[in-house]
Every structure is written in C-alpha cells, then in structure tokens.
Amino acid sequence: MGQRADEAAREAVDGPTDKELLARHVAGDAFAFSELVHRHQQRLWAVALRTLADPDEAADALQDALLAAFRRAATYRGEAAVTTWLHRIVVNACLDRMRRRAVRATVPLPAEEVGPATARDEISDRERSLDVAAALATLPADQRLALVLVDVQGYPVAEAARILEVPTGTVKSRCARGRARLLPLLAHLREGNRDGDESVPSPMESPDLEQPRSQRPGRDGGVQ
C-alpha cells in the first residue's frame, strides 16, 4: 500500500489540519476552535494535571489557557505546530498558577477516592502513582515541566524544547537534575517489588553487592 494512498485516505478521514482549523477560527468559523480543543484536550489536560498536581487548579489553568488561545489565535504565526503553540500556552498558564499560589509547604494531593475492593496490586500501584505525582510536585517549576513533558508524557526532547522555548540542552539538563532530585524521594518505592522482578536493595544502602543485576535496561538516551 503506497504511502501516498495512505495519506490520501487519512486526509479524507481526518479532515482539516490543525492549522486549517485555526485559520477558520480566525476567519470567524464559530466551531473550528472547539474542534481543535476536542482534538487535543486530553494531552493538554494531562500536562496541566501532572504539572499542578491538583485537578481544580489544572482545570482553571486549562480554561485560562484555552480562552487565551481563543483570543490570541490571530497572533499564531505558523512557525510551530499548532499543538506546540497550544502546549506553550497551557504551560504558561500553569506557571502563572504556580506563581500565584506561591510557595507552599505542602502540595495538595489530588483528591481521589480509593476505588472499592481492588486487588492488592492495583491498590499499591495506585499508591505508588500518588507518591510519584506528589514527589514530582515538589520539584522546581522548570524541572517539573521538563519531566512532565519528556518523562511523563513521553514527548521528544526537541518538542519539549519548542514548547518551553529553551534549547534542547536545557531541557536535558532540567530533566537530569529533576530525576536526580526525585531519586531520594522515590527510593522507598524501589525497596519493594519492582515490576515483579526480584527485589533490589537501594543503591545508597548496599554498595557492596557481589553480582551485578542482569538484564539491566540499556542506558540509551531514550528519545532523541
């Protein structure tokens, strides 16, 4: 199946591109912007939620951002992808929120109820997620944003750099520092079972193991 045929089929099914939608919105199409939002709100929500670690704040930030994008659409110059531009606006709205609420001693955990009678593993998975999300929320904003985009959301470093409007090296550095900072905060998760593998003592506590662990995932640079 030729690539061109694929593209033609995709075009027929997917309809207007993001840029076309944004242009229609600027030209007065009343519903183009809503469609754009529905296409991407899942990812934008995930970024806001993981960055702010609070669903109410995330909803506020997302609303601020989308209204700003709605109004500012005419200033979009098309040099970045529309998704990049939208992410940038969401990120800035999150930063605004963080500044506004200033420094707090503790960051509220997402108010989530524990589901009814789930299996033991699922509960501990959930607890682990809450721990990780809370630890992430203790990081400085720049490190947190870099990690949310690259590690949590899995965006390529180059895309995160475009969103954050910094060089890729800066994103890498923020990610590296953020991970190092999370290390002690998440060490307790490592002492239990890891992915169902045999348990491994924390590196800080047992420096003199005899055998290296087999099948250690390669330290490839991941994305990029």
Partner: peptide, 18 residues
C-alpha cells in the same frame, strides 16, 4: 551502576503515571 539503575527507575516511574 545501581545509582544509574535507580535513576532509570525514576524515569520509568514517571512514565508509568497513569
């Protein structure tokens, strides 16, 4: 090396956030 592995693990945990 364990330290490196622990850092990989941090990354994995972030990625596994639902």
């Amino acid at each position: 090396r364990e330290l490196a592995a622990a850092l990989d693990d941090v990354r994995g945990r972030l990625h596994q956030l639902p």
